[in-house]
């Protein structure tokens, strides 16, 4: 399998804090990789480093063999890396259609506004927002806003899609819908990195899991092995394992 994304000893400090510390792993073309870790483990920071929101303090990030460590966010986006935000960030004064069209126009290779709107409609149909195209993004429900994020990401025609807690705050029916969508996206050949707190989601979608704790990588392997790894249990599931079994969230 060809390697699509490679992190080589990537670190990031904020002040004196090591938010991400010497993290290295690879993601292969077509893979669905899960990223887990307790709150504050550095998952979102890691996504921010990959997408160029913050520069890495040290280390290198390669995408498709090309060094993207020093690239700016918009350049990385145009290379085919898309992400959703944990806290959804639609453009509130634009319609749903316009929101998605931005992704198509600026990173998805749309030839013009017309083309961008046409592409945006397709992605909205796919994500089940076909009936909300002309609504203002700020009027959508949370579940729909999460799907809007997904549609925006898809409109960028990504080769790698990073999903930062797209299921948080959704009910179980909405989650099932979202998971079906994610699998369909993966079948189309898009590589996916998924951050998730719900173990159920991780086990049913991720083919491999990387676990972070205090900014450091503590495990990398198939889901069953990672979840049995004593360091992971201690760091992440230790106190919450029971909760994970009694309820749906861990």
């Amino acid at each position: 399998m060809t390697v699509l994304l490679e992190l080589k000893s990537v670190s990031r400090q904020f002040g004196g804090l090591n938010a991400v510390n010497d993290v290295s792993f690879q993601v292969s073309q077509g893979e669905i990789l899960g990223l887990i870790g307790p709150n504050g483990a550095g998952k979102t920071t890691l996504i921010n480093l990959i997408t160029g929101v913050h520069p890495a303090t040290s280390g290198r990030i390669l995408f498709d063999g090309q060094d993207i460590t020093k690239m700016r966010a918009h350049q990385i986006a145009r290379k085919g890396l898309a992400r959703t935000f944990q806290v959804v960030q639609p453009f509130p004064k634009m319609t749903v259609l316009e929101n998605v069209a931005t992704g198509a126009l600026f990173a998805g290779g749309a030839t013009g506004l017309k083309d961008a709107f046409a592409q945006a409609r397709q992605h909205l149909e796919f994500t089940g927002l076909g009936d909300s195209v002309d609504k203002l993004a700020s009027t959508l429900t949370l579940a729909k806003r999460k799907r809007l994020e997904l549609a925006k990401g898809l409109a960028m025609r990504p080769r790698l899609l990073m999903l930062d807690e797209v299921n948080a705050g959704l009910n179980s029916m909405e989650i099932d819908d979202a998971l079906r969508m994610i699998r369909t996206i993966a079948e189309r050949g898009v590589t996916i990195i998924i951050i998730e707190h719900l173990m159920k989601v991780m086990l049913s979608t991720a083919q491999r899991i990387v676990a972070l704790h205090y900014g450091q990588m503590i495990a990398d392997g198939v889901p069953d092995a990672v979840l049995r790894n004593p360091r992971v249990i201690e760091a992440y599931l230790g106190s919450k394992y029971a909760a994970a079994h009694s309820g749906s969230s861990a």
Partner: peptide, 18 residues
């Protein structure tokens, strides 16, 4: 179009390739 995105949320605009 890009300017309107920047006006509303500059970092989100960058992430979308603006």
């Amino acid at each position: 179009f890009g300017l309107r995105c920047i006006q509303q949320n500059e970092s989100a605009a960058s992430i979308l390739g603006v």
